[in-house]
Design a protein around this nucleic acid. Structure first.
Lengths: 338, 338
DNA sequence: GCCGAAAACGTTACCGTTACCGTTTCCGGA
DNA sequence: TCCGGAAACGGTAACGGTAACGTTTTCGGC
């Protein structure tokens, strides 16, 4: 099973390597008959150009997709959607999947500094360390989350749902069902980031009704089934007065449902629950989970477009908010206590 | 932000490009002092070698990970574990994530025929078309599923749980709880593949007790939440006599739990359910899902090792069975009907 | 002091492809 | 008939590394 080069093909077709290259790259200045013959031979030999040689010569554009928290189904599905989308873009773009583990991230940073990585998309929020590391990197970046610090970077775009509005909407829905003592499980919010916005929108809804949100009902947690379970188990024993929960990640909501069941409390009978993200499983939970569904496909598509625009057309950074959908399902009900 | 080449580094260090290359590749024949100086300059410049150039010269080894059915959390987590593992192997191995979509698969096949892909790992069962396509490809392959046809390929290894034994175990557990009318939701089994083995082990347990499994209780379905929901909804209306379900994928089990709830049947009160795979969510379902947990990490690690052994040491193909764990949880109970 | 081996380093020819310049062929119009 | 230009195609120098091979230097042993 020989591995053919462009030269072999040229020889077999009785043309020069240049002509074969032209055929390969769909350039116009080659005769129809010649093109056809070359294409035929290429097909017969199952010839595929050597991507290293092409990359070396042309200087291909590597774009990195950095993901933090793959155990979160929302983030991993978003990352996959982005990779999928990136693979369909016309030409020599190579996509690199970068886990935000220490060494892998460091390599990515070095490669970026060396101009081998020409663009970055970040999935999931970055920890402070990382933000410091990417400051001063002069490549286009796209964040799928809102963050005041990264938004200030000169070449950073962002695309995310309107967290403030959705946070407010969640509060309004729960308040209108009579809930006032609503637990909120968030995660390590930094001033001006997605989670902080969600929370501030949430509090605004209280303010609009002349109420103030009781911040002793707020807890921090990692976004995973396990963490959600643990924090809920402890919280609802401490605070049996809470009648509802807004979990800023569906994973946490799922863990909390399980924990409440173990505590002998019913959902939504005793506690109403709203999640965030709209992961697949949310439609199949018992009870079906009320959640804010993020448009994964749209975010994926547009984040890649944003990056490409900045890379190719040197477009200015943009900060886009997309529509999320409030999915009202079985996990919330009228408040039964006052 | 200049992008340095090995030549720039050489000039700055006052040595030849070869010496720099030697330092880069940790070769012994270079003086300590020289090495240190070169390394310093490399660090200062954030220099990273051009992978295309290296790949072109050395001919890097590309291994492809082909995945079918990413919507299944088990398969996607297995695929990620494999990619993770593959990224830690010492040297110039490039891992390519290949979705089993038509065009992507075709490209992979072409690249493989062209000897650009030097090894393949398949995650999830292949459809017949694909099996035909990979026949006659002369590269090492590893399957994470059992299949009589692929097992016959001269350079194919496999690693999977002992499906027959686990199928038998599931049946034994349910039989010992008094269940005899047990639905089985499988998927398109081919003689001698994982699913067929599971089913035949399952039937064997019946035979050993002098029973024969009633095959009208068997249904086929895709492995997804949605499909599981749909098939269960229809099935349990048709066959209210079934007292248990063995779903060959946790996703199907999850869908079925939801469907039974909608039909007003309780799990495990009216119907006991056993899944397969051990996806994360299984521990958090209400009720917690009894399942056969596959050792994802071990399968990932060993599949990469198997492939590497075949590629580098030209080791003979091996067919390995690993231990799965029966996780008895809340979704099964004593049968209440006869 | 000389020899020879080993250590340290340099020269240079590739790897497969593309792109810059050519060159050749063909053809319509003056 | 000749000319000019477009269409079609070819020769060859890069791209940035690596490695085979050649050269110089060092140094211990006799």
């Amino acid at each position: 099973m020989k591995v053919y080069t462009i030269r072999d093909i040229a020889e077999m077709a009785g043309v020069s390597v240049t002509t074969v290259s032209r055929v390969l790259n769909h350039r116009p200045d080659v005769n129809q008959a010649t093109r056809k013959k070359v294409e035929e031979i290429i097909r017969d030999c199952h010839f595929v150009g050597n991507s290293n040689a092409r990359g070396l010569k042309q200087g291909n554009e590597v774009i990195g997709v950095v993901i933090r928290g793959r155990s979160n189904p929302f983030l991993s599905s978003l990352a996959e959607a982005i990779l999928d989308r990136a693979d369909t873009v016309p030409d020599n773009f190579v996509t690199e999947y970068i886990d935000e583990k220490d060494d892998e991230f460091q390599t990515a940073v070095r490669m970026t500094r060396q101009n081998h990585v020409k663009g970055l998309i970040f999935v999931g929020s970055l920890i402070d360390d990382r933000v410091r590391a990417i400051k001063g990197m002069d490549v286009p970046m796209v964040f799928t989350t809102v963050n005041a610090e990264t938004a200030a970077l000169p070449r950073a775009s962002s695309i995310a749902v309107d967290d403030r509005a959705m946070g407010r909407l969640v509060a309004e829905e729960l308040l209108s069902l009579g809930h006032t003592r609503i637990a909120v499980f968030g995660s390590n919010p930094v001033a001006g980031d997605s989670l902080a916005m969600r929370f501030s929108g949430f509090c605004e809804a209280f303010a609009e009704r002349g109420l103030t949100y009781d911040k002793t009902l707020y807890r921090e947690t990692r976004f995973s089934y396990d963490a959600g379970y643990e924090v809920a188990k402890v919280f609802f024993e401490e605070r049996p007065d809470a009648t509802a929960l807004f979990a800023m990640s569906d994973t946490v909501a799922v863990g909390a449902i399980r924990a409440l069941k173990d505590l002998g409390r019913s959902v939504p009978g005793d506690v109403s629950i709203v999640g965030f993200d709209g992961i697949d499983i949310s439609r199949f939970m018992v009870p079906r989970l009320t959640t804010v569904e993020q448009p994964v496909g749209e975010i994926a598509r547009r984040s890649v477009n944003l990056l490409l625009d900045m890379m190719e057309k040197r477009a200015a950074p943009r900060h886009i908010l997309v529509e999320a959908l409030f999915r009202k399902r079985e996990s919330i009900a009228q408040c039964s206590r006052t």
